[in-house]
Structures are given as structure tokens and as C-alpha cells.
Amino acid sequence: MKNTFIIGNIPVSDTSVPLVSTMLKSEDYLGAVMVRWGINRDNYLVSPGLYAFGSPGPTSDVFVTANYKLSFDTLRKNLSGVNGWILVLDTRGVNVWCAAGKGTFGTKELVSRIKLVSLDKIVNHKRIILPQLGATGIAAHIVKEESGFNVHYGPVRASDIKRFIDDGYRSDKKMRRVTFGFEDRLKLIPNDFIYGKFYLLGAMAVIFIISGLTRTGFSYRDFSGEGGPAILNVFLAYLSGIVITPMSLPYIPARTFSLKGFYTGAIVFLFLLFLNLAGSNAFEIISWFLIITAISSFLAMNFTGSSTYTSLSGVKKEMKISLPLQISFAISGIIFQVIGKLN
């Protein structure tokens, strides 16, 4: 990747530090849109190491981030008008919170990166600012022990950084709190939508094959008659789990994501039933209910991983009940579908 965000070099002690712009360019915005859609997502990174922005000196602040370019860009964009240093850790192109959860945005990497760039020769203070969500991977007191640097956890959102500095390196309650608003959820959907494409195509293929079943063998005389609507139903079940449920998450009256997805799937089913698209006999109708709710519930359950408030213990508890139900719904749905076709 061409590093067009580097606009110069700043000589410090016996080395030179690349200077980065705090203004994003159209290609940075384009890259951000692309990774949201899963394009080049696993290779959207910047080189780990030290960068400068503004006109920093030995008293300037040091901000630590991950080497996922989206994280790096979000940080530098919010530092315009400030002078300082950015220390990029090697998180293999993963954002701060996820990398912290995996330990790559971690104590060991931070301590060794501080030594690698000789941070003590760049600045004359012992203050480094980390995003609060990095705390899942960093033990501040151990960083202090091993590097001498004091970790200051900044706000959750980079957009609060200037306020954090102005308030004397303090975050208030609101700056510390992770939210999961409509916009946050909306940003995640394209990637989830693209991610599940093979499951979607697989499910569509299975349902298409079944839709051609007749008592005398397979028949695909009329695509719009059988296979088309069947594929559409599966697609709507997919949308229900991956788009509709996440979008309406706080408004669906259920705690578990699988139940939320089940409800949304049931509504989609009723909608199709109303349009006379949910099968032509009782077996097919029951089958569509089972298949659509199973798909929607399972996919909605997977959104726990994208959400910012589900716990491991909670998801395990949820899955213990939901996963067997989803599987039996899917299997019996397919059996009913076949019976319905041969009926």
C-alpha cells in the first residue's frame, strides 16, 4: 500500500520519525468504505512503529494505537491541531478492542515497541495515552514496571481525545462508556452481510434443489414457479438475521439474540404467508416457518460477536438452548419441505 499519509520526516536524536497528516484524503475514506464491505479487510494495515503529527517535541504526548489502518486513521483525524507522537503496535491489522481481546494489543507488544523505538530518547516524560478499550490486553502496572512509562487510558472514542487532554487526561463517565447505537450497528452490517455469503449461497442451492422435487423426480420447467420464490424466501431469512435484527436490536422484546432473530424471522414468515409465498400446502407452510426462523435466529445469534455488550457466559448460556433448537428447526424444516413437495 502506498503510504500517502506520510508527508515528511522529523529528525529526532539519532533517527528520523515519519510525519503523518491529520487530514484524511479521499483514498482513506474510500478504503474505509471498502473494508466495511469486507474488501481488503485482512490487509488494511500500516507499519508498526513511531509516527509524528503536527510539530511535536520532547514534551509532546504519545498516543498508542493498533496497526489496522481504520484505527490509525480515526486517531490521526481526531488529532488535528495537536502536536504529538503516535506509537503503532503490531496487531496484525486488527482493531484495538479485538486485538486487545486476543492479546496482540498487549502488554508484551507495548513494552517491546516502546524499547524498539527508544521512546525514552524521543520524549522527556513518562506519559503514554492508550485507548480505553486497549485495557483488555494491557496491564498498566506491568507496563510501568517493565518500561517505566505510565499508561493513561484515554476515552473510548477517538473523537473525545481533545476533551480528554483539555480535562487534564481524564475521561468522564460518558467518554468511558461503550455504546451500541443505530449508527454503530449500521456500520457493521455490510461486513456481516458479505461474510456469510457462502452460507447464503449454500442454503439457496439446497432449497433450490428441493424446490424442484416432484413425485416423478426433478423438474425445473418453470424457475419462477418453484425455485425462484424458494430462493427469495431463504434470502429474506438471511436479511432478517443479518440486517433487520441488528437494525432493530433494542426494540425487539427479547434478551437473547437468538430469540430476537426468531421473532424477526417469524414476522418475515407471516409477511410471506400473507403474500401467499410461504408454500402451497400445510407441510410447506410449516417448513417455511421452521427454515426461516432457524436461519434468522442463528444469524442473529452470531451478531453477539459484533455487539459491544454480550458476555462470554451469557452467550454460552444462550447457545446451550438456542443452537439445538435452531438445528432441529432447520432439519425438520427441510424434511417437511421434502414431504410437502412429494405430497
Partner: peptide
């Protein structure tokens, strides 16, 4: 992780199905 006196215990992990 950040408790310097180990006063907190939690079985941490990803809440992700």
C-alpha cells in the same frame, strides 16, 4: 488485568457465538 492487587476475578473471553 489492570487491577494491581488482584482483587478482581472474571472468566473473560469473547461474547461471540
Amino acid at each position: 488485568l489492570n487491577c494491581p492487587v488482584n482483587a478482581i476475578m472474571v472468566n473473560s473471553g469473547v461474547g461471540c457465538a
